[in-house]
Amino acid sequence: MIELWHAGFVPRPIADVAANPPTADEIVWLPPQGGFRFAADPFGIKRDEGLTLFAETWDYRVKRGEIHYFQYDNDNRLVTSGPALIEPFHLSYPFLIEEGGELYMLPEAHKSGVLTLYRCERFPDRWVPVKTLLDLPAIDATVVRHDGRWWMFYALPGAERRAMRELHVAWADDLRGPWRQHAANPVRAGLETSRPGGTPFVQDGKLHLPMQDCAATYGAAINLLRIDTLTPERFCATPVGRLTAGEWLDGYTDGFHTLSGHDDVTFIDVKRLHRSAAEPFIKLQFKLRKALGKR
């Protein structure tokens, strides 16, 4: 059994989608990625010429995520796509940040051992590393400017599903740091609301975080976490909502683990659990590539 994800977007703001989940006919889905491949963790940005979505692309024959872009025109038609960022290590969760007239990406790259900020040198396909923000293998780092500071929410790898059951926080006065660890880390524990799953947003005057519910399975649903208190010393939050995949895409009802947004567009992904007689052959291809050094 393998997991297959499918990403898409909804032409409504994230706070609106969180309060009123989309219907199937509202969602624009990325094209299929091919057998035993998928695109997940979508983030995006709108510009005059249209919408660009960035996502992790994964091939079970390679088992190393890459960041690819998908560009749509203003009529939601796919215009072009291609690689945006590829490293020797796994990449996913291409979180985007606009600051000081620059566009940055903060992809998950915990296999590298650190968390690296990339600046867009040529949109959308040239990104250069500019700063190591944390000397930690942070997972799904999610950044927001709130109450005069930069805040980062992230998970850490470890035994007993640590990456799904502990929420850590860091803060800084400047995006490039120095970043300081929250005094109460880990600020939250439990499989339902500890792993970040998208873009923070403000609703009813309160900051909300999309969080992955990993209790039953990895990325089963998105739980919304309302931040009640956030200082360098204190953290208090309350779960206030839950979104599941529903019947958005035929067969993809087994998970939903990214809710991100920019301007008046929201990005989502859904999961299906898939079993195929070809799985042993796909696994053999991966082992052969590894033996030949083709990672």
Rank of each mutant, 00 (worst) to 15 (best):
E3I: 12
E3D: 14
W5H: 02
P11L: 10
A15Q: 12
D16I: 00
A19E: 13
P21I: 02
W29C: 10
W29M: 07
P31V: 09
P32L: 06
Q33T: 12
G34C: 07
G34D: 05
A40T: 06
A40V: 07
P42W: 09
R47C: 05
D48C: 01
G50E: 09
L51C: 07
E56T: 04
T57A: 10
Y60R: 03
V62T: 07
V62M: 03
E66K: 13
I67R: 13
H68N: 14
Q71C: 14
N74K: 09
N76K: 02
T80S: 15
S81A: 13
G82P: 06
A84E: 11
A84Y: 12
A84G: 13
L85D: 09
I86D: 10
L91S: 10
L91N: 08
Y93F: 15
F95L: 06
I97F: 11
L103E: 00
M105E: 03
M105H: 03
L115T: 11
T116C: 10
T116E: 12
C120W: 07
E121K: 07
E121A: 15
F123G: 11
D125H: 14
D125M: 06
D125P: 03
V128T: 14
V128A: 14
T132D: 13
L134S: 09
L136S: 13
A138Q: 02
A138C: 08
I139T: 04
I139S: 05
I139R: 03
I139Y: 03
T142H: 07
T142K: 01
T142Q: 04
D147Q: 15
R149M: 15
W151M: 09
Y154P: 04
A155L: 03
A155Y: 01
G158S: 06
E160A: 15
H168Q: 08
V169A: 11
H182L: 04
T193L: 06
T193V: 15
S194L: 09
P200R: 08
F201C: 11
F201D: 06
V202E: 12
Q203E: 14
L207W: 10
Q212S: 12
Q212R: 05
D213T: 03
D213H: 01
T217F: 12
T217H: 12
G219S: 08
A221P: 05
A221L: 09
I222A: 05
I222C: 01
L224P: 00
I227D: 08
D228H: 00
T229R: 13
L230T: 04
T231R: 04
T231Y: 08
P232D: 13
R234P: 00
V240P: 01
T244H: 01
T244V: 11
G246R: 00
E247Y: 00
G251M: 09
Y252N: 00
T253P: 01
F256M: 15
F256Y: 01
T258Q: 08
T258A: 10
T258G: 12
L259Q: 08
H262R: 02
I268F: 03
D269H: 01
K271T: 08
R272N: 04
R272L: 02
A277N: 05
A277W: 12
A278H: 01
I282R: 00
A291P: 02
A291D: 08
G293K: 07
R295G: 15
